[in-house]
Amino acid sequence: MRIGVFLISAFIVLLTILGFIAPFLTHHLIDANYLLTVIATAGALGGIAFAIYGWYSSRELPKMIDQKVNAQLESALARFNERLIKQQEAMQKVIASYQVSDTDRKIDLLQQAIDLDPTVYNALVSLGYVYWYDKDDFLAAEQCFQQDMEYHPDNYQAASDLAALYAHYNQLLSSLSWIRRTLELNPAAWKSVDEDTRFDAVRQKHFDDYEKLIKRAKSVRHGYDGLWGGK
């Protein structure tokens, strides 16, 4: 459209210039009537040209908009389908890892799933448990659980996994902190937390703080904003 406006404007300017220089080429002087005629003619031609261009644009513009919108929709749909395929493939690899007994092969499958889609359900958590129980690699397990929390900040189960991991490696204050986070995300999880033997050392070492967290979670009925602000 910009090109069309430019061409019309250039055409009008060219006609105007020719109108001005024509008398000089024929050795005639420019009088006022001639000047007004040139200007009026240029204006009339410009008006006609822009009217025709406006009519054309009014017919073609909707088609251009439709084409652009359709192209954007097709591009978005292609990206969505590509993501969906990756998610499905990633989930298949996670499921396949459940059937594998070899630790390195399980790690490889889970890592492939994460590479395809780091947000895929349970991939990072499963990988964290492999590093924890099969490899006894605290740092790798911690990283997996923390990454899952980054992708799924409301995943109270991953928060509980981190609490259990810290308790297992005798980092009891960190464990207590993630128990708190677990119950902030889901106060109803207090029962499963309280029955989890992996937190026995936390209960023994930090009994009062632990009981305070459980008591707060149990008291929740209709929302819990503000309940976790105090000590």
Rank of each mutant, 00 (worst) to 15 (best):
M1G: 11
R2E: 12
V5T: 14
V5R: 06
F6K: 11
F6I: 09
F11W: 09
L14V: 14
L15K: 01
I17F: 06
I17V: 15
I21W: 06
I21E: 10
L25Y: 08
H27R: 11
H27C: 10
I30P: 08
A32N: 09
N33I: 08
A40F: 12
T41Q: 06
A42Y: 03
L45V: 15
G46F: 00
G46D: 05
I48G: 08
A49W: 01
F50Y: 14
A51P: 01
I52E: 09
Y53K: 06
Y53D: 02
Y53R: 07
Y56I: 04
E60V: 04
M64V: 11
M64C: 09
I65P: 03
Q67G: 10
V69A: 09
V69S: 08
N70W: 01
N70D: 13
E74Y: 08
A76G: 09
A76S: 14
A76N: 10
A78T: 12
R83K: 13
I85Y: 12
I85N: 13
Q88V: 11
E89L: 06
K93H: 11
K93M: 10
K93R: 13
T103S: 08
K106F: 01
L110P: 10
Q112E: 07
I114C: 01
I114G: 07
I114N: 04
D115F: 00
L116V: 00
T119G: 05
N122D: 15
A123D: 06
S126P: 05
Y133D: 14
K135N: 08
F138E: 11
L139Y: 11
A141V: 09
E142M: 07
E142G: 09
E142K: 15
F145L: 02
Q147D: 14
M149R: 12
Y151V: 01
D154W: 00
N155L: 02
Y156I: 04
A164T: 13
A167E: 02
Y169M: 01
Q171C: 06
S175F: 01
R180I: 06
R181P: 09
L183R: 02
L185C: 06
P187H: 01
W190V: 07
K191W: 06
T197A: 12
D200Q: 07
K205Q: 15
K205Y: 15
L213F: 02
I214P: 08
S219P: 03
R221H: 03
R221F: 01
G223T: 02
Y224M: 08
G226M: 02
G229L: 13
G229Y: 05
G229H: 11
K231E: 14
K231I: 09
